[in-house]
């Protein structure tokens, strides 16, 4: 690919694509000081190194980026060359607005073909990995090339093609991310991250597939792994967390029992009551009475 730069406010290549903020390729023939200062990304930024060797800070971590490596950062994460320097080599990038992926309620500006549940899983994965250096990702090179060609030649159906390619780019990144993090040596750490994610959103009706995907594993091996690590099946572990949180909330006098049931992910206060009583012998209301002497 030759050097180019498409920008929203400059030229009309991106007119049909308000979600692509910028796309470009730069061939850097000599070390440029202050050409790539560390900045906080405001968009979802993907970089791909075509040749050369780049020394960058990615979300506070120093990474050496080599040809065929991809890097992305979520909005709010920092990226830039070490000391602002841009090293010798060729790099391609694309900046996207993926809010519509991450904000399910928003249909305006929706360009992606992902179903709601796919989008949700992808969102969880990106939330857990807010930036990453993904080494040797051959597919990205072809996708960049194809997007560029489509934008240049504008053949029939090019708008759909570009959006499909963007979906493909996101899938390639997410899949590599989950593969990279699935290594068994990191499981305890992943499990901790998963638990924190579950605790933050207990009201969501988690499925095992979603939980497995967010740590980058298939459902079967995930279930097996969770069982051997925690002694519980994934869904039992989740119920365990729900009752735990409900127990805590019941001790706060100002909360309504039905709200507690729904906030902790039970279908109804009846469902909550049955589950809670089976384990503790108390209905939630009795439990609250016993634990509040005010």
């Amino acid at each position: 690919m030759n050097q180019f730069l498409f920008k929203q406010d400059n030229g009309n290549e991106l007119m049909l694509f308000p979600h692509i903020l910028e796309m470009g390729v730069r061939k850097n023939l000599s070390v440029q000081l202050n050409a790539f200062p560390e900045i906080v990304a405001t968009r979802f930024c993907v970089y791909y190194v075509i040749d050369g060797k780049f020394d960058w800070q990615v979300a506070g971590r120093r990474s050496i980026i080599l040809p065929k490596d991809a890097v992305y950062v979520m909005p709010g994460e920092k990226i830039g060359g070490v000391n602002g320097t841009l090293d010798v080599g060729t790099v391609a990038w694309i900046h996207l607005d993926i809010d519509c992926l991450l904000d399910k309620g928003r249909t305006q500006g929706k360009w992606s073909g992902f179903s709601e549940s796919e989008a949700l899983t992808i969102e969880h994965i990106f939330r857990m990995h807010r930036a990453a250096h993904l080494p040797i990702l051959n597919e990205v090179s072809r996708i960049f090339q194809d997007i560029y060609t489509e934008l240049q030649q504008r053949e029939v159906g090019y708008a759909s093609m570009v959006n499909q390619l963007l979906d493909e780019l996101i899938i390639v990144l997410v899949r590599q991310l989950t593969r990279q993090s699935a290594s068994s040596r990191d499981f305890p750490k992943k499990f901790l991250q998963l638990e924190q994610m579950l605790r933050q959103n207990l009201a969501h009706q988690w499925t095992v597939e979603e939980m497995a995907a967010s740590v980058g594993m298939g459902t079967t091996s995930f279930t097996e792994r969770v069982r051997s690590y925690s002694g519980f099946s994934p869904l039992s572990y989740l119920i365990n967390l729900r009752v735990t949180e409900a127990t805590r909330l019941l001790k706060q006098p100002d909360l309504n029992v039905t709200d507690i049931a729904l906030d902790t992910g039970f279908y109804s206060s009846q469902h909550f009551s049955t589950t809670f009583k089976k384990l503790t012998g108390y209905t939630p209301r009795e439990f609250r009475k016993k634990n509040l002497y005010l």
Binding site: L192, E195, Y229, S230, G231, F232, N240, L241, V243, T244, E245, T247, R248, L279
Partner: peptide, 22 residues
């Protein structure tokens, strides 16, 4: 059954008493 140890900062090591109980 496992429960989690949280490390909200360096040197910190905490557990959720309700989680242990449940």
């Amino acid at each position: 059954g496992a429960y989690t140890t949280f490390h909200p900062a360096a040197d910190y090591s905490e557990q959720d008493p309700e989680q242990i109980f449940i």
